[in-house]
Design a protein around this nucleic acid. Structure first.
Length: 346
DNA sequence: GCGCCTTTGAAGAAG
DNA sequence: CTTCTTCAAAGGCGC
């Protein structure tokens, strides 16, 4: 538990109760409009990023993010996302408001103001992530006093975002990366994918709730000064701590994501079995012995020795059956020896 | 290039 | 049925 003065930062999700009720109807209208746009985007069945007539007649979007240097598919995705974002300035403003609230809130230090258009773009991408759904995700904390932040519904449930195309997971954004770094990572990923195509397809396990929690909040934790340069293992330990501090209700959205992931996985790979992955790495891996406890299961005499009888269990102390040991012939013989030694010394 | 670290939860294997 | 083991993710580090 928290010590005096120690601040516990827990990644909580916003519930509907916390959202801004008066704006709900407007938001629903916006979402419906945007869903219609998205449906028109994907209706030709060829590309989710095919420009619909309504968008192609729009004025040029703001130059939020240069798509120069990316491959044509990524460029198209970026440009079209910019168009969508251009139409969703309320959301962008909301992202900025959230970030501003975060900067002002004494209990929330994770999110300073967007440092650049790219930063703002990245955050918006994160907020619109299909994975994030109707939740605020990384911006869910520290908004208590604002009241003006709009709920960030995800209007594009079927749309990939450019960050994912560039190799970043949903909810993640290259906070300080340059476009060149993004390209490098994308190329590495592509190269790796090609190599893996040669081998048998490796179907990964669906993620559990805790992994969704980590995935969604890793960027947030890493933006905190204390955790900025820490090793992943340290971060994960912290995630474990924060996860345990969440209530069941707060964990529920992550369990829902895991259930959805499991369901999708089962649909996609109906014949897949988790054990298919078991031997892939294990055969090259020295098995870590996590169970070996040197003298576990033996009697107190063997565990602690005759010189440490004060550590023996109650039963051993009164020459009865040891509560730790399994009893076999050897044990009985050993016990007889103890008894004999004890009576000899009397 | 690959295992380790570190977490939780799901699932399969083993007892 | 219970317990144990593996693997999902992340990314720096060491061999």
């Amino acid at each position: 538990m928290a010590e005096d003065g120690e601040e516990i930062k827990i990644f909580r999700v916003r519930t509907e109760d916390e959202s801004d009720a008066p704006s709900l109807a407007d938001d629903k209208k916006d979402v419906a409009l945007e869903e219609e746009m998205v449906m028109s985007l994907i209706s030709d069945g060829r590309s989710a990023f095919h420009p619909p007539s309504t968008l192609s007649s729009m004025p040029s979007p703001l130059p939020l993010f240069s798509s120069a240097g990316f491959n044509p598919f990524q460029q198209l995705a970026i440009q079209q996302w910019q168009m969508l974002i251009f139409q969703n300035q309320a959301m962008i403003a909301n992202a900025a408001a959230n970030a501003f609230a975060a900067a002002l809130s004494p209990t929330f230090t994770a999110h300073p103001m967007p440092a650049s258009p790219l930063d703002l773009f990245s955050r918006t991408m994160s907020a619109l992530s299909p994975l994030t759904g109707p939740r605020v995700g990384m911006m869910g904390r520290g908004l208590g006093g604002m009241g003006s932040a709009l709920p960030l519904a995800s209007p594009f449930p079927n749309l990939l975002n450019p960050m994912q195309l560039m190799g970043y997971g949903a909810g993640m954004a290259p906070s300080t990366s340059t476009a060149a770094t993004g390209r490098k990572r994308a190329n590495e990923k592509t190269k790796k994918a090609h190599n893996e195509e040669d081998k048998k397809e490796h179907i990964k396990k669906p993620k559990n709730a805790f992994f969704f929690f980590m995935k969604e909040n890793r960027g947030v934790l890493k933006s905190e000064e204390e955790w900025k340069d820490r090793h992943s293992a340290n971060l994960n330990a912290e995630f474990g701590k924060r996860w345990r501090e969440l209530t069941d209700e707060e964990k529920q959205p992550y369990y829902d994501m895991a259930a959805k992931d499991k369901e999708d996985h089962a649909k996609k790979y109906p014949n897949w079995n988790a054990s298919e992955n078991y031997a892939i790495r294990a055969k090259n891996k020295t098995k870590r012995d996590r169970t070996s406890k040197p003298v576990e299961g033996k009697k107190c005499r063997a565990r602690f020795g005759l010189d440490n009888q004060q550590k023996w269990c109650k039963n051993c102390g009164i020459k009865k059956k040891c509560i730790f040991a399994g009893k076999g012939e050897e044990d009985e013989k050993e016990e007889r020896e103890i008894n004999q030694t004890a009576s000899d010394s009397d």
